[in-house]
Design a protein around this nucleic acid. Structure first.
Lengths: 189, 189
DNA sequence: ACCTGAACACCGTTCAAGT
DNA sequence: ACCTGAACACCGTTCAAGT
């Protein structure tokens, strides 16, 4: 039960607290259960208080998505140099597993046509570097990366356990598709 | 302006008319503009009248999606027998182009984890037959098809012209990914 | 069976005001 | 700058009733 607060009294909220609470709502009630009003209730504030910290619901979900992407472990420079192809594969499978745990966010990812938060950018940079080192032609890295991202997000969206196809089957399909794509991306010239 | 109608008076609606009107709303206002209430207004009926013909909004969008898939031209049996790999490619690129024109429906496709309408089923059957004839191992056709579908829908979702990447670039990426996947699916054994 | 009227239980967002 | 109160303009869906 939230302490009653008059106008002008602070709730001690900030952007991070809002994003954290949004992730908690997401974990409890899924994407369909994530509403600005419900989130405000959980935080003990009026619905419109959230607009002091995020621009709106779309931006909030963007922030949540990038927060999730922050959980993907990025291979260090040494690993990338030693075996760049394995590094690309590691980035993608790690991303897949993290995104799979938030598969109901993937339609939003696609509707927004990608992610442009700091974690997304960081992942993209490392993957692009690794692809170049793995032998992808200069100037073709972006295209290859786009293919890999669409595949990864697409399968993560498709895979929830509630679906008609078991998640482990989808995961196997994803891994196979990833191998097919990487083999072709590297050998194609 | 709809003719005023008292209780018990028919509007002459049926499932098909509702789906057709939904597609018209979609063309005018996009997926975000497709609401049960707005659709009812366009049809000149009360909002709840729609529930005599569709189970709800989710089912309506499912029906619209399958209606869209009905526009994909399916290769005839002769073509499939003559060059099965080309037939698979034709099915996928034709689907891609049709879905691309309705890219804002793709998040719904993924959220629903596929399409199970009659047109979707028909496309799947023909594609599966063509994949088998093209040399995909028995029992591996479903997996290959799943990979192709996710890729096709993923790129269709990703490609709208409003996005940061031009649609023709995305289309090129899609075609390349499709070639990569098909080459591996057929040769992999 | 197919429709209307009315209501229920919500949404996201904005505006003005208070400290 | 950060919050509240109140409102605006919507949603999808259900229930009861009419023909």
């Amino acid at each position: 039960m939230p302490t009653t607060r008059g106008p002008g009294q602070r709730a001690g909220l900030d952007r991070e607290a809002v994003v954290d609470a949004a992730r908690a709502v997401l974990a409890d009630a899924g994407y369909a259960g994530l509403t600005m009003r419900g989130l405000a209730t959980r935080l003990g504030v009026a619905p419109n208080a959230l607009y002091s910290h995020v621009g709106g619901k779309t931006e909030l979900v963007d922030l949540v998505l990038d927060d999730v992407l922050g959980e993907v472990s990025v291979p260090d420079e040494v690993s990338v140099h030693r075996d760049p192809l394995a590094a690309v594969e590691a980035i993608m499978t790690a991303s897949f597993d993290v995104l799979l745990a938030h598969s109901d966010l993937m339609p939003h990812f696609l509707a927004r046509q990608g992610a442009r938060g700091e974690h997304a950018v960081r992942l993209g940079e490392v993957a692009l570097d690794a692809l170049a080192r793995a032998g992808v032609e200069p100037g073709e890295g972006e295209e290859a990366l786009r293919v890999l991202i669409v595949t990864t997000v697409g399968f993560a969206a498709f895979a929830p356990a509630s679906g008609p196809v078991p998640a482990d089957e989808i995961r196997a399909s994803y891994l196979r598709a990833l191998d097919w794509l990487l083999a072709s991306a590297v050998n194609d010239r």
